[in-house]
Nucleic acid binder design. Structure first.
Lengths: 216, 216
DNA sequence: CACAATAATATTGTATACATAAGCTCGATT
DNA sequence: AATCGAGCTTATGTATACAATATTATTGTG
C-alpha cells in the first residue's frame, strides 16, 4: 500500500482514470472511494486534491469532483505541443548523443521491429513508449524528458485509439527507422522535423483522431 | 477567503513561495501554517498536496514538506523549454493573427515602450508579462497559452534576477520591437526565432543567470 | 570531552464528528 | 401539466482526536 494511503490512492485513481475505468465526466464520490479502498475520506481527499492540481480531475467546491472531459480541440492542442516537445527532444538527442543513449535507442528500436513484424499491437504499444522514452532521455534534459513523458501519459487514451487505425502500426515503425537514422547521423533539424510529423496530428491523421473521439 | 480555505491557502502559500518569502529549502510545518492562517491542519494539508503535485514543494512522507530548490541545471533546462514554447506561440500567433489579438499586442507593446523609456524596471516587469501573455493568447491555442503562462510564473524568481542586469531593459524592449514587426508581418518562422532568442539563456545571458543564482 | 543509546518531544498520517451547503422529493399553485 | 418552493437527504469542508514515526534532548559510557 506504499505505506502512505494518500500517495497510493493518487496512483490508483490516476490509473483508473487513464485506463478509462473512470471515464470523462464520472463523479468521484469521496465516501464511495473511501469505502472502495478501505480507508477514510481524509486520504481520498488528499489524492483528489493532487489529481485536481495536475488537471486530471476538476474540483468544484461543494460539488463532487469529476473526471475532466477534454474537448477535441484541446486534445488537438495538446498533441500540437507534444509534437513540438518531441521534436525538441529529438533535436537535442541528435546533437548530444552518446554511446549509452545510442544503445538504448537501438535496443528499443529493435523491440519495436519485432512487435511490429509480429503484428502485436499491444506489444508495439509498449515498445513504442520505451522507444520514445529513450529519445527523451538522450536529450539530456531531465526537465524536457519529464514534460514529454507526462504529456505522453496524459494523451495515452487518445493515442491508443489512433493505433487502431489501419496500417498505423507498420507506418509508425517505418517512421521510427527514419528517425533513428537521422538521430544517429547527428542531424538535429531532421530529427526535429521527423518527430514532429510522427507525433503530429496533421491531415488525415487528425480527422482519424476526431472521428475516433466522436465515436466514443 | 475565497469561501474555500484549501484553495485560498494554496494561493497564499504559492505566492509566498514565488515571492521568495518562503525560499527554497524552507520547511513547511503544518501546524505553524495552520496557526498563521487561522485554520486547522486539514486545509493546510490539502494545499500542500496540491503544491506538491505541481512540483513547487517536495512532500517527504513522515517528514516535513520543503520548498523545492531547483538546481541551476534544471532552471536552465526549464528556460530552454520555455524558449521553445514561446517560439511556438509566436509562430502560431504570426500565422493566426486577427485584429483583436493584433490590437492587444500593440497595446501591451506601447505600455512596454513607456515603462522602458521611463527606466521603470518594476513597471516594465509587469508590462513585459502582459506583452508575452498577449502573444500566448494570439496563438489561439488555450493549452499552449496555459503552459507558457505556467512556466513563465514558475520561472518568475529567476527572470526577475535577469532584469537587473545592466541594459537588459532597453535590450529587451528593442527585441520586442523586432518581434512585433515579424508577427504583424505574418512571418511565423521569424517570430519563432526571435522569441526563442529573446527568452533563451544563451551565451553571456546564461552566465549572467548562473552568476546571479550562485550569488543567492 | 566526544559519542552512542535511550527517553522525551514534536509532527505527521488517518479516522471520525459535526456544521453547512447542494441536490432532491413531493406537494401546492398558476 | 408544468413550475416553483419548502423540507428532507446526502455529500462536502473543516476541526479535532489519536496513533505512529521522526527528531531532539538527555544521560551514561569510553
Amino acid at each position: 500500500m506504499s505505506e502512505n494511503a494518500g500517495r497510493w490512492l493518487r496512483d490508483e485513481i490516476e490509473n483508473a482514470i487513464l485506463s478509462n475505468e473512470l471515464g470523462p465526466g464520472t463523479r468521484l464520490d469521496e465516501t464511495a472511494l473511501a469505502n472502495r479502498f478501505g480507508v477514510s475520506r481524509t486520504p481520498v481527499r488528499e489524492a483528489l486534491m493532487q489529481l485536481g492540481a495536475i488537471g486530471l480531475i476538476e474540483i468544484r467546491p461543494r460539488r463532487s469532483a469529476v473526471v475532466v472531459d477534454l474537448p477535441p480541440r484541446r486534445v488537438y492542442e495538446m498533441f500540437e505541443v507534444m509534437a513540438e516537445l518531441e521534436g525538441m527532444a529529438g533535436s537535442l538527442a541528435a546533437r548530444r548523443l552518446d554511446s549509452d543513449s545510442r544503445e538504448a535507442i537501438a535496443t528499443a528500436h529493435d523491440r519495436c521491429e519485432r512487435s511490429a513484424g509480429a503484428g502485436d499491437s499491444d506489444a508495439y504499444y509498449y515498445d513504442n513508449e520505451e522507444f520514445h522514452k529513450a529519445i527523451y532521455a538522450a536529450s539530456r534534459s531531465d526537465y524536457l524528458a519529464e514534460q514529454c513523458a507526462q504529456l505522453h501519459q496524459r494523451l495515452r487514451p487518445y493515442r491508443r485509439l489512433q493505433l487502431r487505425v489501419r496500417n498505423r502500426l507498420s507506418t509508425s515503425f517505418s517512421e521510427h527507422c527514419a528517425i533513428v537514422d537521422v538521430i544517429f547521423a547527428g542531424d538535429g533539424e531532421a530529427a526535429r522535423k521527423l518527430l514532429q510529423a510522427h507525433v503530429g496530428v496533421q491531415g488525415e491523421r487528425f480527422s482519424d483522431l476526431v472521428a475516433s473521439m466522436a465515436a466514443r
